[in-house]
Computed example of a mutant assay.
Amino acid sequence: MSRLLRHAALAGLALLVSACAEGPSRPSGGGGDGRLDRSTTVPESGAAGRPTSSVLEQLKGLSTAEIERRFGPPAFRRADPPAEMWQYRTRLCSLDLFLYRQPNKSVTVSHAAVRGPTGAPVGEPECLKAVQSARAGEN
């Protein structure tokens, strides 16, 4: 029972940190599914304010090795078992990855978020490109 409570508390903390990092909350148009409102992302259709599918969804389920191959080692890493938080920083944005140990013992990405240097909104594709470019610049 205590393990379940710890897991729930860490999940709540991760959501709180993520929500605080993204600035003031906005009403969700999704009908209360518990997901963060992504209407501030760059719309694929060009229609302003229209929710789009998140490019960050592509990171979900990736292992630590896959993340390090793509982005290199994180600038900041924090482990609070069963969760880990990895952060990549560039001048344009920060990429926050929340990883959890799976039943098969692998650690994979459960949630990802991007934010500008002062919490200002930033496009997800632009941020991922900036993080990958920073990695390429290291080589």
Score class of each variant (00 low, 15 high):
residue 66 E to P: 00
residue 66 E to V: 01
residue 66 E to D: 15
residue 66 E to T: 05
residue 66 E to I: 00
residue 67 I to W: 03
residue 67 I to D: 00
residue 67 I to A: 01
residue 68 E to M: 01
residue 68 E to R: 13
residue 68 E to Y: 01
residue 68 E to G: 01
residue 69 R to H: 14
residue 69 R to C: 01
residue 69 R to W: 14
residue 69 R to Q: 15
residue 70 R to H: 05
residue 70 R to K: 15
residue 71 F to G: 00
residue 72 G to V: 03
residue 72 G to W: 07
residue 72 G to T: 05
residue 72 G to K: 03
residue 72 G to R: 02
residue 73 P to I: 00
residue 73 P to G: 06
residue 73 P to R: 15
residue 73 P to T: 08
residue 74 P to V: 11
residue 74 P to G: 01
residue 74 P to K: 11
residue 75 A to F: 06
residue 75 A to M: 04
residue 76 F to E: 12
residue 76 F to H: 10
residue 76 F to K: 08
residue 76 F to D: 03
residue 76 F to A: 03
residue 77 R to Q: 12
residue 77 R to P: 00
residue 78 R to N: 03
residue 78 R to H: 13
residue 79 A to H: 12
residue 79 A to L: 10
residue 79 A to E: 13
residue 80 D to W: 12
residue 80 D to T: 12
residue 80 D to Y: 12
residue 81 P to N: 11
residue 82 P to Y: 08
residue 82 P to Q: 05
residue 82 P to S: 03
residue 82 P to T: 04
residue 83 A to I: 02
residue 83 A to P: 00
residue 84 E to A: 08
residue 85 M to E: 13
residue 86 W to Q: 04
residue 86 W to M: 03
residue 86 W to S: 03
residue 87 Q to M: 15
residue 88 Y to I: 07
residue 89 R to A: 02
residue 89 R to T: 05
residue 90 T to F: 09
residue 90 T to S: 14
residue 90 T to V: 07
residue 90 T to H: 11
residue 90 T to M: 10
residue 90 T to G: 09
residue 90 T to Y: 12
residue 91 R to E: 13
residue 91 R to F: 09
residue 92 L to P: 07
residue 92 L to I: 09
residue 92 L to Q: 14
residue 92 L to E: 14
residue 93 C to P: 09
residue 93 C to W: 13
residue 93 C to R: 13
residue 94 S to A: 15
residue 94 S to I: 09
residue 94 S to T: 14
residue 94 S to W: 14
residue 94 S to R: 15
residue 95 L to G: 10
residue 96 D to R: 11
residue 96 D to G: 03
residue 97 L to T: 04
residue 97 L to Q: 06
residue 98 F to D: 06
residue 98 F to W: 12
residue 98 F to N: 04
residue 99 L to T: 03
residue 99 L to P: 05
residue 99 L to Q: 02
residue 99 L to V: 03
residue 99 L to G: 04
residue 100 Y to N: 06
residue 100 Y to C: 01
residue 101 R to G: 07
residue 101 R to W: 10
residue 101 R to Q: 14
residue 102 Q to Y: 02
residue 102 Q to V: 00
residue 103 P to H: 07
residue 103 P to W: 07
residue 104 N to F: 11
residue 104 N to G: 08
residue 105 K to R: 14
residue 106 S to M: 10
residue 106 S to I: 03
residue 106 S to H: 13
